[in-house]
């Protein structure tokens, strides 16, 4: 097995450990677990960054050098990387560890799927001609930052609903550790905003790439169409908040629906007729 893939499969367990520590903190109410969770997540992020760089270098050694963003395996790894990076930035900015138990598991799942699914190959493959484009790199990077922000918004939406369930039973430490609903709502909104801007950039860079590779900036292929659907869902969500003042539960539900659409854009599209064909 290639060394970077070995490191990455270990990182999977590191993220799992981090998610568990964050969860212990919530369940037991002992603050001790929190810094441990953050520390372990940070270690995982650093190891993952190194592995990505190694993989990049390795691809050059193979004479087929390209950024590690070209197939399902690499995109899943990058997805997990953006989730943890964004999460740690948020944790540091707002100085609370309450979100960890709801966000880090997503990174773990993406890593686990990449590392252990028999359908995902971790080989470094050369780029076929259609993928040899710098626009493709900016496309993948912007899309995945968007997806990561939407993932965080979804985690926050789940927390919001959970907090709602426990209303009036504030004695449970588990729920007490969740931030106030107003804060959750505000953070979720901000994540959606970030995600929306990145998704918009992702769609734009994707169409520039399509324009230089296929001769049409938009051809309604299922992947493009689903990214537009996702964009429309979040646009509807932002409008209902901006103009109609929707808050709280409805927004939480919308952030979960939006995330489902993100997942479908990412994975589900492969099961539809017609495809994002690569020449």
């Amino acid at each position: 097995m290639i060394i970077n893939a070995t490191i990455l499969s270990w990182v999977t367990f590191v993220y799992f450990a981090s998610a568990m520590f964050y969860t212990f903190r919530m369940v037991t109410g002992k603050e001790f677990w929190g810094p441990l969770g953050s520390f372990v997540a940070l270690v995982g992020l650093i190891a993952q960054t190194l592995a990505l760089i190694l993989r990049w270098v390795e691809s050059y050694k193979l004479g087929i050098g390209h950024a590690p963003l070209s197939n399902l395996y690499e995109s899943l790894i990058f997805f997990a990387w953006t989730i943890v990076l964004l999460y740690l930035i948020i944790e540091w900015r707002i100085k609370t560890r309450n979100l960890g138990a709801f966000v880090v598991p997503f990174a773990f799942l993406a890593m686990a799927y990449a590392s252990f699914s028999p359908h995902v190959s971790n080989r470094i493959q050369p780029l076929i001609p259609a993928l040899q484009s710098n626009w493709l790199i900016s496309h993948v990077v912007t899309c995945f930052f968007g997806y990561a922000a939407f993932t965080i918004a979804c985690g926050l939406g789940l927390m919001y609903l959970l907090k709602g369930l426990g209303e009036g039973q504030s004695s449970r430490p588990f729920l007490r550790y969740l931030p106030d609903r107003e804060i959750l709502d505000e953070l979720s909104y901000q994540s959606v905003v970030i995600g929306f801007i990145f998704l918009t950039l992702g769609i734009i860079t994707g169409s520039v790439w399509a324009y230089s590779a296929w001769g049409s900036y938009w051809s309604w292929d299922p992947k493009e169409t689903w990214s537009l659907i996702t964009w429309l869902i979040y646009a509807a969500m932002l409008h209902s908040r901006f103009v109609r003042g929707w808050r709280g539960k409805r927004m939480a539900i919308m952030s979960i629906i939006g995330f489902a659409s993100v997942l479908f854009t990412y994975f589900g599209v492969n099961y539809l007729p017609g495809l994002h064909s690569y020449f």
């Binding site: 169409t225 689903w226 537009l228 429309l232 869902i233 509807a236 017609g274």
Partner: peptide
């Protein structure tokens, strides 16, 4: 429009 687009991909 989002729903119609879903239809178009099915």
């Amino acid at each position: 429009i989002a729903l119609a687009s879903v239809l178009g991909t099915i």
